[in-house]
């Protein structure tokens, strides 16, 4: 720039003004956003927790009490949060007599565009997925949001996720098939017209369940006895 002061001078003052004004507007905008973010943080966290609570009741029919568990290192479940890293949480649901009815597991991954966050219910007695709920989705309205429609949710009434006999792996990994082609209990009927979103759901549930279900089996005793003794 300094080599051609005469040539660049008039243009660079214009550029400078543009740069300054854009930066100034950016700073003002950032200021507004930060203030709002700080001001609404607690309220949003509270609302989200309540919504999650309601969702757990939705994916685990017939429960009357929820206890959260934290997934610890070396595949242990803890009742209290530990360490300073955020841990994955699972929610054990019990009926009024204190019997374990199922476990709600949160899974998230990439949808068609942005993050897709799901909650699904698992019944360890029948080894089936029994409920499904979309927590957060920015899928295309009218297309990707069909995963919240009754016809797709029906896939999760009794989706087979039985583990192998040593409880380390899922026998038949969940697969998404073309709409109307479902022939095995571990298959999800996809949505024609929303192929990518429905496959993303299958992928999220598959990876999440492969990771979490063996862990639940290992800790089944803790989960079952948790609610019987005290409280």
């Amino acid at each position: 720039m300094s080599e051609h002061p005469t040539l660049d001078q008039p243009r660079s003052t214009g550029d400078k003004k543009m740069l300054i004004s854009m930066t100034a507007i950016g700073v003002i905008c950032a200021f507004f956003i930060v203030i709002t973010h700080q001001g609404t943080l607690d309220k949003i966290a509270k609302n989200k927790a309540e919504a999650l609570d309601r969702a757990v009741y939705k994916v685990l029919p017939g429960i009357s009490k929820i206890t959260p568990f934290y997934v610890g290192t070396e595949g242990k479940l803890e009742e209290k949060p530990f360490g300073d890293k955020p841990q994955q949480k699972i929610y054990a649901g019990y009926d009024s007599t204190g019997v374990l009815k199922g476990i709600a597991i949160q899974g998230s991954g990439k949808g068609y565009g942005e993050l897709l966050s799901l909650l699904y219910g698992y019944d360890p007695n029948t080894q089936k997925l029994i409920g499904f709920y979309v927590l957060e989705s920015k899928e295309t309205p009218g297309i990707g949001d069909k995963i919240e429609k009754e016809s797709f949710l029906a896939n999760f009434k009794a989706l087979d996720v039985s583990l192998t006999d040593d409880h380390n792996k899922i026998k038949n990994p969940i697969t998404v098939v073309k709409q109307g082609k479902k022939s095995n209990p571990w298959e999800i009927d996809g949505i024609s017209g929303a192929t990518i979103t429905s496959r993303a759901v299958g992928e999220i549930v598959r990876t999440s369940s492969e990771k979490t279900l063996p862990l639940i089996f290992k800790n089944k005793k803790i989960l079952e006895t948790q609610n019987n003794g005290q409280k």
Partner: peptide, 23 residues
């Protein structure tokens, strides 16, 4: 570009506020 920046800011603010009102 400036208008879009300003509009986007208020949309972000609205997004936070709606989440705070009702999920």
């Amino acid at each position: 570009a400036s208008y879009v920046l300003i509009i986007a800011t208020f949309v972000t603010i609205t997004d936070y506020m709606i989440q705070a009102i009702s999920i």
